[in-house]
Amino acid sequence: MAYITRNPAGSTPVRGSTFARYIIWPRQRLVEFVNRHRMRASVGSLSDRELRDIGLTHGDVSRSLDAPISVDASEVMQNSRRNRARNW
């Protein structure tokens, strides 16, 4: 059974080996989990004014950190920031 994983650029799914399935993929998820924990501690402690300075709200932070672990939380925050940049 083949396993689908992402290439290093993160854009195109490619067929992976058993090594990718049992070593690389879980490691990537663990790294993402640790990054989210750090983001929640650092970005979550910012005031509304500080978040607005960087173009985010507490809702954006919560939404990005509550997204599925397979989704990069920082990309969700960047997309929220880009979308809001036109509406401030």
Rank of each mutant, 00 (worst) to 15 (best):
M1V: 11
A2C: 05
I4E: 03
I4C: 08
T5S: 02
T5D: 03
R6N: 04
P13S: 01
P13Q: 00
V14L: 01
T18N: 14
A20H: 08
R21V: 03
R21Y: 07
I23Y: 09
I23K: 09
I24F: 03
W25R: 15
P26I: 03
Q28D: 06
Q28G: 04
R36Q: 12
R38M: 08
M39K: 03
M39S: 05
R40Q: 04
R40N: 04
A41T: 12
A41G: 08
D48E: 08
D48K: 09
R49E: 14
E50I: 05
I54H: 02
G55S: 03
G55K: 03
L56W: 02
T57G: 02
T57V: 06
H58K: 13
D60G: 05
D60V: 10
D60H: 14
D60Y: 06
S62M: 12
R63F: 14
S64P: 09
S64V: 10
L65E: 08
D66F: 07
I69H: 10
I69C: 11
S70L: 09
V71R: 13
S74P: 07
S74T: 15
E75C: 08
E75T: 12
V76Y: 06
M77S: 05
Q78I: 13
S80Q: 13
R81N: 07
R81Q: 14
N83G: 09
